[in-house]
Design a protein around this nucleic acid. Structure first.
Lengths: 261, 261
DNA sequence: CCCCTAATTCCACTGAGTGGAAATGCGAAG
DNA sequence: CTTCGCATTTCCACTCAGTGGAATTAGGGG
């Protein structure tokens, strides 16, 4: 009776685990609860399978069940694992404090991110604000790779084949202006290669510059500095860029010291 | 040849998914990389199984592989899921800003947490600091349930049978002073029932008071306020406690307004 | 109260997953 | 460069865990 479509993962890869992770991923930022039906829709999995997997995720503490509305939400466990990821990260451990100091010194925002598929994910984002009405740190927030300085610096830092693979994905998803966009992305990558950084303003009146951090045995990271409420100008971009280059050099030095550990 | 011990999960529950989650959990705060061997040791799973599951987790983006040292670390994906959890949380969305305002107004730390097994996990922790040398927000950080005001307030907020189940677990794990400790926990629970809050100083010179937040269709949360560099005094505790009660009432009002949504 | 919708459980089937053994890879020592 | 020793990965035959369509149950609205 079971007409399971043959699993493509082959000998490596565990189908149920993959599917369970897919279910967790179905909870995108902003969604609170999802019912099994919605999950089945979003993931394309059979409803009965979803029913069983969500139950397992509840038992494992990754989901909380909301009996009154027959639905689920991400449980606190996921942020404790996220916290473990951040405290484990040797890069964040080493340069987190430096980033804070630099933000205060230069009076601008400093961020550190790496890639999750086609998005950049902040590991840390320090917002400079003159008054202590500080923002909450947005660790975990995602921004699109192809539109941001962070993402383009990342692209400049990774190996050729992976870069081309990602560029193809952008082509597929952005509806309009693809050609101009891709050219712009490549221009940013060249800028990183020649100047060490690239500058982008994907949000109005925000100027951001970023540079890749490439270290053996670690994913490629991107470090950025940004400033709000300014007009984009090449002079300003290169000023911030020079700060960024200097700071990135200091970071790499610090990281080189503690890496072999 | 395969002599798999019969899976206890029965018809509900997916063994592979459970095991995969166990592997993610093996990365506790502070650990950077783990090899398959270490993971097998920590989880008690067969080495070959671990090998296959870690590969799946890499393919699913939850782990990064460090080829040079044949090991794995948590990938950025886990913090984006964590971020989704935080931005989805209706409680945090509603009272996050209020917490920040309250922290500034009362000049003390304000935190919001819920339970992950026997630990309390901060969803938000706003540290008051007179100078803007603010700390990074420690969302995701865990503190032991039985030793903290947060945890005891949580215990006071949950249903009887679940509470007794947890108390038994504490008995099992704490080596010394169990009896005195449990009595102390029960005293805190009584305090919550009579005064609305409990006060605990589990860290030297830090006074913390907490109160539960119980809402239909949501996990039980605990809200706390704390102050550093003070001596524990009942007068101070009840002063902060009254602030906390007032603030919690305001929070519950705000939450009642937006819950039915 | 009864229908309608959606989630859950049932069930027979089978291939996905298993774990011990063998092979492979990697680093260190000679 | 070769050999040894350890750890990880691959192989493989076996079988039970997992599957998904159908039946059932549970809610919620009229």
């Amino acid at each position: 009776m079971a007409q399971a479509r043959r699993y493509a993962g082959g000998v490596d890869g565990n189908r149920s685990l993959e599917r369970g992770i897919e279910i967790l991923r179905a909870f995108r930022p902003g969604v609170d609860t999802l019912g099994n039906g919605e999950i089945a829709e979003r993931t394309g999995l059979p409803r009965s399978t979803v029913s069983r997997l969500t139950r397992t995720l509840v038992n494992s503490g990754m989901l909380d069940e909301v009996r009154t509305e027959r639905s689920y939400r991400l449980a606190a466990s996921v942020i404790s694992i996220g916290h473990a990821m951040r405290t484990g990260s040797p890069v964040l451990n080493t340069i987190g404090a430096m980033m804070r100091a630099e933000s205060a010194k230069r009076r601008l925002n400093v961020g550190l991110a790496t890639a999750d598929r086609t998005m950049m994910v902040y590991l840390e984002s320090i917002r400079y604000s003159p008054r202590a009405a500080l923002r909450n740190v947005v660790a975990g927030q995602q921004v699109p790779m192809e539109l941001t300085s962070l993402g383009r610096a990342y692209l400049a830092g990774i190996a050729e084949p992976e870069r081309e693979r990602l560029l193809k994905l952008f082509k597929r998803r952005s509806t309009a202006a693809t050609k101009a966009l891709l050219a712009d992305v490549r221009r940013s990558i060249s800028a990183v290669e020649s100047d060490g950084f690239c500058a982008v303003s994907w949000q109005p009146a925000v100027l951001a510059v970023a540079t890749p951090i490439v270290l053996e045995g670690l994913p490629v990271y991107a470090l950025n500095m940004s400033l709000q409420n300014v007009d984009r100008s090449d002079a300003l971009a290169s000023e911030i860029g020079s700060y960024l280059n200097a700071f990135a050099a200091k970071c790499k030095e610090a990281l080189a010291g503690r890496e072999p550990e």
